[in-house]
Amino acid sequence: MITYFRPMCAAGWPGQAGVMITIEHLTKRYGAQVAVSDVSFACQPGTVTGFLGPNGAGKSTTMRALVGLASPTSGTATFDGKHYRELPNAGRQVGVLLDAGAQHAGRTGRETLTLAAMVLGVGHQRVDEVLGLVGLAGRPAGKRLGNYSLGMRQRLGLATALLGDPQVLVLDEPANGLDPEGIFWMRGLLRGFADRGGTVLLSSHLLHEVEAVADQLVVIAGGRIAAQGSKSELLAGTGGTLVRGPDRALLAKALDAAGISVSSGPDDALVADADALAVGQAVAAAGVVLTELRAAGGAGLEDLFRSLTGSSHQVQEVQA
């Protein structure tokens, strides 16, 4: 198994006055069971960090420890050096959405936000603002949450997280239950938030959900960090060129003759360890027919995710 471990620079970016999340050697045990083991990573202001891993890998435990809902067995999780519990009015600095289902079914969307707004000390006007922002203004705001779809609950959860106008967003599986249009909308929202200097940590068990918006990726599997780094760094590590042709054996032979090593790609394709030009030249020289030639790119990241998280049952979900 390939493991990429690239600890990120711990210093804040010069000239940027955002809040940095730092998780250092975080370990959480439940009796003999280790949920999270020695997890360290940092999220910089102005970036979106995708926290990836299969269900049960330790994402939620890490995030709960980050916002003080769980006490770590050892290690620390801080915002600009401060524990979440030390923040004077936590919701004004860190917007949190850990579980969209964790809301009172008997309250309306507006009432749920009003309660949070009272704690945060923001006005009713702000409630209307975020309702509009997440697309729940008007009639949906007056409906009881028992009648909300999961997608609507996610939007309300995002509204709660944004209510205090925070500098940091911590979101656990925020895309769950959102339709493709909703996921696209959320990406834009998070991108804009980060571009204005905000810090975003969002988790997902689906690579495609975070791939498009994340700058940094942290992959966790079995409670341990399996890989982390910028998206391009991780991609570079698994590059290669995907080639497909009617005769797979012939194709492999042609590439082998040109000194290009190959491995099995998805389905009947091959992944060659060279750029597209070199592959194309080698194949043309051998006179072999090609039906597909492209950078293994996205699929490479997906393979990486799959291999790092190392569970075959994830494959279908990843491709869904």
């Binding site: 009015n89 004004r92 945060l120 000390g121 998070l190 804009g192 200097g197 905000g198």
Partner: peptide
């Protein structure tokens, strides 16, 4: 519904409720 995720994050230190 504008894509204004709140105003640009500000650095004010809010007080505890």
């Amino acid at each position: 519904a504008t894509l204004d995720a709140g105003r640009a994050p500000t650095g004010t230190a809010p007080t505890a409720p």
